Amino acid sequence: MKFRGKIIDVACLNHFTRVITTISKLTKTCVLRLTPDNLFFILSEKVANGGVSMWCELAQANFFDEFQMEGVSEDDNEICLEVAPENLARALKTVQNAKALKVKLTKKHCPCLTFAADLPTLSRASYARLRRQYLPPSAQTLKNVVDRMKNLSNFLVLEANMNGEMNLKIDTDLVSVTTHFKDLGNPPWGDDGSQKDCEVLAQVRLDVRRLQQFLTGQQVNPTKALCNLVHHRLVHLILLHEDVSLQYFIPAVA
């Protein structure tokens, strides 16, 4: 197996760093799957134990100026590695002002990803600081609400309907709190959309820490964010950027 990639564009390197940093906030380990066209970061925990799932897909052409790989065989041309995203994020942050970054698969005691940076000769102080991009206002509002609800209960109920309404609810012996969101957009439901009762609320009870973890960690700066609910089963969160698709699954708790 062989892999070698090179990023020259500074904006692409910074964007790649933000994606990896977001993933590092969501999981300690995951599987990195390399194919000739894409990179996938995959997490699949045991749902029976309250585990979450994640699927992040990156088109390599949108980040890498050079990308070469050889899988196990021509019929199985892919490489899978278990990685610690936090380690990747640390490596990338130390080279964020690099003129170019090379990533390659090496083997020491075990297969490793090696990062080699071509740093500028000028001092780092002469370069503008990277402007960090945060959650858009609507998502920031949602994060603030979840942060406050976490202090009241370990669990919350997320419910939404096809009429653009979403509620966050906490109900304990001591307090009941509901935050209402209205006039949210709804993606097309397909040919049978007219047959759906737009007022019916789908509802999922969640571990509040799982949702807070997702909202706190994301730095993808999406152009669109989607939330799908499977009644009493799971919440499917999607962040879409021009060249990044990040999906996160949070199972319901009893």
Rank of each mutant, 00 (worst) to 15 (best):
L101I: 10
E78F: 15
F64T: 05
M54K: 00
M54N: 00
S126H: 13
N62I: 01
V72W: 02
R124Y: 10
N97H: 15
L58A: 08
V83N: 03
L130H: 08
C112S: 05
N38C: 09
S126V: 14
F64C: 06
S44Y: 05
T94D: 03
L101Y: 04
E74P: 01
R90T: 06
L105P: 03
R90H: 11
V52E: 02
V95A: 05
C110M: 10
K46N: 15
K46V: 11
D76W: 01
S53F: 01
S73V: 03
F63L: 05
F41Q: 00
L81R: 04
S126W: 08
L58N: 08
W55K: 08
V47D: 07
T106P: 00
F40D: 03
K108M: 07
T106V: 10
A59Y: 10
I42H: 05
L58D: 07
P111F: 01
S73D: 10
E82W: 09
K107W: 05
E45C: 11
Q96K: 12
L122V: 13
N38H: 14
A48N: 07
A89L: 04
E86Q: 13
R131S: 09
M54R: 00
R132D: 06
H109C: 10
E82M: 14
R132K: 06
F41N: 00
E82A: 12
W55E: 06
A84Y: 00
L43C: 03
D65E: 14
F41C: 01
F40W: 08
L39C: 13
L81P: 06
D65P: 02
V47P: 02
A125L: 09
E78I: 05
Q96H: 12
F67I: 03
K108T: 13
S44M: 06
I79V: 14
C110L: 11
D118K: 09
A98V: 05
R90W: 03
K102F: 04
M69K: 06
F64P: 04
T35Q: 03
L130R: 09
Q68V: 03
D118S: 10
L119S: 09
A117R: 04
L119I: 12
Q68K: 11
A128E: 15
L119Y: 05
N49H: 14
H109I: 10
D76S: 07
T121M: 06
L113R: 02
R129C: 12
M69F: 04
M54F: 00
D37K: 12
D76K: 07
K93C: 06
S44A: 11
K46H: 12
L43V: 08
T114K: 04
V95H: 02
C56R: 00
T94F: 02
L39G: 05
E82I: 15
A116V: 09
R131K: 12
T121R: 10
M69C: 07
P111D: 01
R129L: 14
S53T: 03
H109K: 14
L105R: 02
C112I: 00
N77Q: 09
A91G: 15
A116E: 10
R124D: 13
F40R: 04
F67L: 02
Q68A: 08
S44R: 12
Q68E: 11
A125Q: 12
A91I: 01
N49L: 15
G71C: 09
L92F: 10
E70R: 13
L81I: 07
C56E: 01
A116I: 08
A116Y: 02
T106S: 09
